[in-house]
């Protein structure tokens, strides 16, 4: 049955309406969870607020397990679901830069949009910096074109990479998430006890 648009069960003219609605729900959930505040987000790195980890990991395991069940019930053809291709060198480097940008800037692109939407100037500056970064990357592209596509592993899944089934991978993710939820809850309690300055905004 699914996915609907790639199989043309929903036709082209509805595409953008659906994109708007999905995007709208995305922004709403991000803002309502507290991601329009960089101080909430950066808390994950200092132990005073693990909201990022909670929302992110919960969403990831719900979607991951959901996809596998949808496939099991025959509701979705996983071959038609986009699996992000892996370019090892480039993605390691990209992840490195994003980690650095994350702890310095306190936002990621999606969360900065919601910060802009509620009037945060630091969100506007982050989003502008993001745009400049994309521009700089594109301008320099000829210099690292080979690096960008080096070590191309194709649309490889985590299970294929480690030689075990993706069902086991999903199960492991759930276990790790539950342990992480518990441990970070303990850490957060301890850090907050010694913290007087952090006021939620």
């Amino acid at each position: 049955m699914g996915p609907l648009i790639p199989q043309e069960i929903i036709t082209g003219q509805w595409d953008f309406v659906i994109a708007l609605l999905i995007g709208g729900a995305f922004g709403f959930i991000l803002e309502a969870s507290g991601f329009s505040s960089s101080r909430n987000i950066a808390g994950v790195f200092y132990g005073y607020n693990f909201v990022v980890l909670r929302v992110f990991f919960t969403a990831m395991i719900v979607a991951m397990v959901g996809l596998l069940y949808f496939s099991y019930f025959g509701w979705i053809d996983l071959d038609l679901v986009f699996v992000l291709p892996t370019y090892l060198n480039s993605m390691l480097f990209g992840g490195f830069l994003m980690g650095l940008g994350f702890v310095i800037g306190g936002f990621c692109p999606g969360t900065s949009y919601t910060a802009v939407a509620i009037g945060k100037i630091d969100g506007i500056v982050f989003a502008t910096g993001f745009l400049i970064g994309v521009f700089l990357f594109a301008e320099g592209f000829p210099f690292y074109e080979d690096f960008y596509t080096a070590n191309d592993l194709g649309n490889i899944t985590i299970g294929e990479m480690f030689g075990i089934s993706n069902e086991w991978i999903a199960f492991l993710f759930v276990v790790v998430a539950i342990v992480a939820f518990y441990v970070t809850w303990l850490i957060e309690k301890r850090v907050r006890k010694n913290m007087t300055e952090y006021k939620f905004e």
Partner: peptide
Amino acid sequence: GGILFGIGSQFG
């Protein structure tokens, strides 16, 4: 941070 994220997201 935004600039780093911008460059990183394209590599990533």
